[in-house]
Design a protein around this nucleic acid. Sequence first.
DNA 1: GACAAGATTGACT
DNA 2: GTCAATCTTGTCC
Length: 201
Amino acid sequence: MADGSESDGFEWLGERPLAAAPRLLGNVLEVGARSGRIVEVEAYEGVDDLASHAAGGRTARNAAMFGRAGLLYVYRSYGVHWCANIVCGTEDRPGAVLIRALEPLTGLDEMWADRPRARTVTDLCSGPGKLCAALGIGGHHDGTDLLSAESPVRLLMAESGGPVGPVVRGPRVGITKAADRPWRFALEGNPHVSRPRPPWS
DNA sequence: GACAAGATTGACT
DNA sequence: GTCAATCTTGTCC
């Protein structure tokens, strides 16, 4: 990306995760023929955020989080599910934005094939583990450059250039440390958002 | 080498 | 609404 041709429009990924998170809403994540619009995210800062994987310093697992903005950080949750993050910030100040929910756009048939238990379209990608399964994202994608046209996983700019409609904010989900920080963002009223659903205070 | 914790999900009551 | 499944990573001895 030295020429900047692939990152045009995503320069703000170099900002703090808290600033970049709401701007990711509405943009598109693409894996092969499958793609989905990002409708829910959570921001995780670096060493200052106890809930962040980067809080304990750099390890083999979270190395991608300490890379440059625009990389994909994938980790396994509860030994069962994969969760996908988009690395934000700078290498001096690591951080990432967890993708919690997508609105399926293309490749629905392949998503259903990988998530046979999903009952409805809104159940396909309404959770971090679900969307990784639906898109086929796994540990082998850790460290992938989302802004390169060559990558198997790509982040695409929405036609609108960002979120359409109001964005709602609430506390993060499923964590025990720093759980009070309202760093979860979602598109208001979108049926693909994971539980617990808005309205949030 | 052993142990505890975890950014979840799905099945069951 | 409640609870078990599952396994990798990091920490401690």
